Amino acid sequence: MDASNSSPDQEREGEQQLSALPIVCEKDNSQEASDHTPMLSPSQQEAETRHTLVTEPFQPILKVLADLERDDPKFAFPAARLVGLYRRLWESCLSKHIDGQKLEQSNQILKEASTHLSKTRDGLQLRHDKQLSRLRFFEQALESSRGPLIRVLDDWDHPCRLNLPGFLDNAREE
C-alpha cells in the first residue's frame, strides 16, 4: 500500500487508529489495577483483563508507531493500519481462547455436578430397591400368616359353633 496515494480522510483515519490504540505505561497500569480492582464487578474485571491482555503485547509497537508518526507521518498511517488489523485479529483470537477456557471450566463444573447427581441417583435407587425388597418380604410374611390369622379370627368370632356340644355339656353341669 502506498502512503502517497492515501486521501486526507484515510490519513485522519490512521491518526484516529493511532489515538485509539492507547499507550499504557507499566507504572500507570499497575496503579490503575490496584486502584480499580476492589470496586469492579466480576464482569468488569474480566473486561479489564481482556483489555490488558489485548493491549499489552502491542505496547512496544505502539511506542514505535508514535515515534514513526513524528518522524514520517505518511508512512505511519499504513503501519498503524496494519498494526490495527493485527491487533483486531489478536483480540479475536484471545477472546475466542478466553471464551473457550470459560466453556471448558463450565463444562468441568457440569461434569462434576452430573457425577454428583448420578451418585445421588444411584444411592436413591439402591435405597428404593432395598425398600422394595423389604416390601416383598413383608408381603410374603403377611401372605404366609394370613391363612392362620384368618382361622384364629374366625374361631374367635364364632366360638359357639366350633365347641357347641362341649359348651352345652358344660352349661348343663352347672
Rank of each mutant, 00 (worst) to 15 (best):
R70M: 06
S41H: 14
E69S: 13
D35W: 14
P57K: 03
A47F: 10
L68A: 12
P38G: 01
F58K: 06
D72Q: 10
V54R: 02
L68V: 03
H36M: 12
S43D: 15
T55S: 10
A47S: 15
R50V: 05
E69C: 09
L62I: 07
D72T: 04
M39T: 04
Q59N: 09
K63A: 15
D35M: 09
P42D: 02
A33Q: 14
S43T: 11
T37W: 15
R70S: 10
R70Y: 04
T55Q: 08
E69I: 01
H51Q: 02
R70V: 03
L53F: 07
F58E: 02
L40P: 00
T55E: 08
D71Q: 08
H51V: 00
R70A: 08
L68C: 08
D72C: 12
T55I: 03
D72W: 08
V64Y: 14
L53N: 01
D71S: 05
V54T: 07
V64R: 13
D67P: 00
P57I: 04
Q59L: 09
I61V: 11
A66Q: 13
L68T: 07
T37F: 15
T55G: 06
S41V: 11
M39F: 07
Q59K: 06
T52A: 10
V54Y: 00
E46K: 08
H36A: 13
M39G: 04
L53R: 05
L53K: 04
E48H: 08
T52G: 07
D72R: 11
E48M: 05
E69D: 14
L53Y: 03
V64D: 11
T49L: 13
T55L: 14
T37Q: 15
K63D: 13
D72N: 10
T49M: 12
A66R: 09
L53A: 01
S34Y: 04
Q44K: 12
S43H: 09
S43L: 10
P42E: 05
L68G: 06
Q44C: 07
D35C: 13
V64M: 11
E56P: 03
T55V: 00
P42N: 04
L40Q: 01
I61P: 02
P57H: 06
S43C: 11
D71V: 04
T55D: 10
Q45H: 15
R50F: 11
S34E: 03
T49Q: 13
Q45T: 09
K63E: 09
L62H: 08
Q45G: 13
P60N: 15
S34I: 04
H51E: 01
E56V: 06
L65Q: 00
Q59R: 13
H36K: 14
E56C: 07
E46H: 08
L53D: 01
H51C: 00
